[in-house]
Structures are given as structure tokens and as C-alpha cells.
Design a protein around this nucleic acid. Structure first.
Ligand SMILES: [Mn+2]
Ligand SMILES: [Mn+2]
Ligand SMILES: [Mn+2]
Ligand SMILES: [Mn+2]
Lengths: 215, 215
DNA sequence: AAATTGTTTTAGACTAGACTAAAAAAATAT
DNA sequence: ATATTTTTTTAGTCTAGTCTAAAACAATTT
């Protein structure tokens, strides 16, 4: 499997996790910052290899085989991110682009040894689940901070947006995985939140609140 | 720089370490298991980028810029090999092919952090020197076991052939980096060697002896 | 139901990197 | 010095992956 094929599979996998319905050519093109015509070409190739179910004009979904392949790429991505943060002391906003490269290294043995070396983690530095060697995922129950009621308290267990900008913003506000967060007030006018993080009280926008996972 | 360009540079670098003279198109083709015509195409491209000095029909050599680029690839290769052996418990005959993939990961920061994580090693698992971040190499003085006189004793510090087959043979004979080796007898008829490794006495062919470095 | 708009596919072109076959140049042998 | 062999380059073809522009199809609006 080529890098490009792997990237398409992974993108379809992530889109399927959100949508249920078949994935459209345009959705893939947008997410990958490429053109719809390029996507069509690739879908034909992936269908030929029985990695996706593809019917012209009707969108695409992963086959079992494609699903497993996609999970293995996600597994590698998240294990490498964990390695970079835990062992090489990278911060959580720096690792995604590097993992985009490392996820294409081909070796089951390597990734399984890396898994062991890291102590078989179930979550990556952003709180996302790491599939195990057979593709199984331990679902983490979590909800968006924006869905929490006033006066409730929770622990930050993940982020939805993993962009460097957002993660740096969280660093600045001293919000990290494991931080305790309490909803002090929900402002109905602009849907912003007054929250307590540790001992500090801060105000965050609805957009911020809807990108933080709480348990 | 593409993977392919990097592989050509690295090959030219290794050939230059042996030969002094300019490197021939055929030598590169042979080492890379490709065709001379493909090599010619690539040499033009590398010359365009000022990574090699190339004159039609007269062979090729690395420019300063090309030399540094090649060293950085070698640095990455050898640091990854060290990581795989030291941290992930791979054996020295398994790591080369994996390092061939890993050496193309693009990130100075990653490789420098990996270097620190490993304790800034100066040699890889095969006894080859690891260039530092600026390309400097600490030359290791060593000689081939085959050049050693009778009754001399030395320590195995490296291997010339790093093929899996050869390394596995050494494992079988319990020869590893750090092993003490004494020349008991040199057989003039077939140039074979009678040696003592630790407490064991064994016979090795001239070919074997000329692929082991001793200090 | 027809027209408009949006989406997806097709057709054709381009680049990187590989290949084969033929031509050109260099090296070697006679 | 000429002929032969070997090496290297050129010319042309192929595949993967991308793109633009045009055509085909689907969804919406009037
Ligand atoms: Mn990521
Ligand atoms: Mn992640
Ligand atoms: Mn190696
Ligand atoms: Mn090595």
C-alpha cells in the first residue's frame, strides 16, 4: 500500500466515524486539500483492491479489510505521537505532523514493540483511543464540555480539535489532560462559559468549550 | 528532497568512502539495483540542485552541500538503528531495512531529540560511526581481523558486511561487538583462521575474517 | 416539468521515477 | 590505427498521482 492510499483510507475512516452515511467525494477532497477528480481516481483504485465499497455518484465506505487497514494506520499514528510526547519530550501540539510521516513506516513488529515499550497505552496525548494489534478499540466515555450543566465538575480527558493553535491556547489557559474543570456559569447571550480550572477562574467561548472532552 | 534523491545521495556517499575517484554511473546502478539510464536521469537532477558534481561520461562526486545532506541521512539511519536495538530490543541483523525507511523521516528536531534520548551515541549497533548534528564524525581506528598477525589479540569493534546472513552467522559463533578475539593460527593453504573467541576455539574462512573489524 | 445549481466523473495533460532499446562515447584489444 | 567491447547517455514508453476543463449526473428551485 502506498502512502497516498493509506492517507485516503485514513481520511475515509475518520469521516465515517462522524457521519454514518456514505462519504462523498467532495468531503474527502476537502479534508485532504486535494481535488475531487483526484479522489475519484483513487476511489477506483481502492475499490479494485477491495478496500472500499464504491458506487459511482453514490459515495464510498470502507470494507472490513479497509477498516482494519485504516485502524492500523491510526494505531501507528497514535502510538508514535505517544512516543514523541512520553519519551522524546515533545509537547502535544508538535507531534501530529511528525506522526503523519511515521504512520507510514511499514513493520508490524516495530509497531508492536513500540507499543510494549510505551506500556501498551490505550490513549494518545490528545486523549484519542489507540487501537490494539488486532484493531480493537477501548471506547472512552466522554462528553463535550459545552454539554455539561452548570455547577458540574469533570476531568478533561481529550480534545476534539487537535490543531497546534488550539492546543497552545489550552496550554496558555493551563488546561491539560487530567485538569479538573467546573462550570461556574453559562452565559446565555453568547453561549460562553465561566469555568474554574484548578484554582483559576476563566471565561471561554462556546467554540472552545465544544472542543474539550470531559469525563 | 524526495526519498529517491536521498537514496541516491547516500549511495554516492558510501561509494565515495571507498574509492577516491569519481563514481561511475554503473557503480551506482549496481549498488541500487536499478538501471544505468535511471541513474543518469537522477544525476542530472541532483546536479541541477547542486548536490553533485556531474560531467557527462566522467562520473560524479558529492558537492559540500551534497556531502552534508548525505551525512544527515546516514546520521538518521544509524541513530534509528541504535534506537531499535537499544530501546526496542531488536537484534542487530533486523534493523537495517527498518532504518532504510526511518532515515527518510523529515525533522531535525526529532533526530536531535532521539540523539539525546539515546545518550548521544558515537557508534551504531554495527560499530559504524554516527555523524553528529553538524556532520562531524569521530573516526574509529580499526583494522580487519584478516590483517591481524598470529598470536595478536583484539576486540571486535565493528563489521564490514552488515547483511542479516553474516550477522546471524556471527551470533551463532558468539562473536559480538566487544568480543575478545585471538589469532591462534593462519592457514596458508586456504587463508583460513583459527581463532579464540572468549574461551572457544573456532575456524573461520578468510572471507569471514575480512568482514570483522578489530581494535 | 423545466431550468438552474451543485456534485461527480471523464478526458487529457503534467511530473517523478522507473524501464527498454538504440545511439554515442570511451576503453580495450588486435 | 582500427576494430571490438563496454559504458554511458538519449529517446521514447509506462505507472502513480496530481491537476484543469469539460461532460455527465443529481439535487434544488422556480
Ligand atoms: Mn494526530
Ligand atoms: Mn492524536
Ligand atoms: Mn544499516
Ligand atoms: Mn548500521
Amino acid at each position: 500500500m502506498t502512502f497516498s492510499e493509506e492517507n485516503y483510507l485514513k481520511t475515509i475512516y475518520h469521516l465515517m466515524a462522524v457521519s454514518d452515511a456514505d462519504i462523498s467525494t467532495n468531503a474527502i477532497a476537502e479534508k485532504m486539500e486535494t481535488k475531487a477528480s483526484s479522489v475519484t481516481d483513487m476511489l477506483k483504485k481502492l475499490a479494485e483492491k477491495e478496500l472500499v465499497n464504491y458506487i459511482k455518484y453514490q459515495g464510498v465506505s470502507l470494507t472490513e479489510k479497509g477498516q482494519l487497514a485504516a485502524k492500523m494506520i491510526v494505531r501507528k499514528h497514535r502510538l508514535w505521537e505517544t512516543f514523541l510526547v512520553e519519551k522524546l519530550d515533545f509537547s502535544w501540539d508538535e507531534v501530529h505532523d511528525l506522526a503523519e510521516q511515521l504512520e507510514h513506516i511499514k513493520s508490524e513488529k516495530l509497531i508492536n514493540k513500540l507499543d510494549d515499550f510505551l506500556g501498551n497505552p490505550t490513549e494518545d496525548p490528545h486523549g484519542d483511543a489507540i487501537p490494539d494489534a488486532s484493531g480493537r478499540i477501548t471506547k472512552i466515555e466522554k462528553q463535550l464540555l459545552s454539554e455539561l450543566e452548570k455547577n458540574r465538575v469533570g476531568i478533561c480527558v481529550g480534545v476534539k480539535d487537535t490543531s497546534s493553535d488550539f492546543l497552545k491556547y489550552l496550554d496558555k489557559q493551563e488546561i491539560a489532560l487530567g485538569s479538573q474543570i467546573e462550570i461556574i456559569e453559562k452565559e446565555s447571550f453568547d453561549s460562553s462559559f465561566r469555568i474554574r480550572v484548578g484554582t483559576k477562574e476563566i471565561t471561554i467561548s462556546h467554540k472552545i468549550a465544544s472542543n474539550i472532552y470531559i469525563k
